[in-house]
Design a protein around this nucleic acid. Structure first.
Lengths: 96, 96
DNA sequence: TGAATACTTGAGCAACTATTCATATATTTC
DNA sequence: GAAATATATGAATAGTTGCTCAAGTATTCA
């Protein structure tokens, strides 16, 4: 059945959150457990700023959750639907 | 495990294909069966040109297949992974 | 208190995207 | 062959996105 405009827009927002290599790589490391911004940036070999900007978007979309401990901020996945979408997509890309 | 750059890029391409309201609405009508460009455009209340441009992208990504009959071109979904991703995403958006 | 650390944020910019509009191609009908 | 129909395509444009760089906020430590 034809998707309504508002629904299609929300769905597009969800997939948009997964439509960037950097965000997907962030998700891939958070699948192993929570990690702080500096370590994520180090793993990705990117600046903390770039990573922080992307985490902001993921946080806004409620795909990740943050926990502050001292001056570090630990991020973790806040949505198992996303992990399932990620894995299904990856499966398609790898053996598709 | 950290996603490699090329893999993350391919995965991002897949999700990018689903990251636009118009493309999602096209997919939503093609889930019911094949349809020609003019009818898709009419259902979406969009110009045929805009729809054709989006179909081009979906075709390029091999998410839809086209079949020409006379001067009409019928499109259908060419990937059940995509239908599954679509449904999983929609489920998240509707009762997430 | 002052310096160092961890992260966030805003502005700016280059690259990308989705639509419109005009035009082109292919097919049918007259 | 000419006109009409169905779709595709290229250029132009407005809007969006992801990064960098510089500056800002917290927090810890000396």
């Amino acid at each position: 059945m034809l998707l309504q405009e508002t629904t299609s827009s929300h769905l597009a927002d969800l997939f948009s959150a997964l439509s960037d290599p950097t965000r997907l790589r962030i998700i891939s490391v958070l699948l192993e457990g929570e990690m702080n911004v500096g370590d994520i940036a180090a793993q990705l070999e990117m600046t903390e700023s770039a990573v922080s900007h992307q985490l902001r978007g993921l946080r806004y979309m409620r795909l990740v959750r943050s926990r502050k401990n001292g001056r570090q901020v630990f991020y973790s996945l806040d949505d198992d639907h996303v992990a399932r979408l990620y894995r299904m997509g990856l499966d398609h890309v790898e053996h598709g």
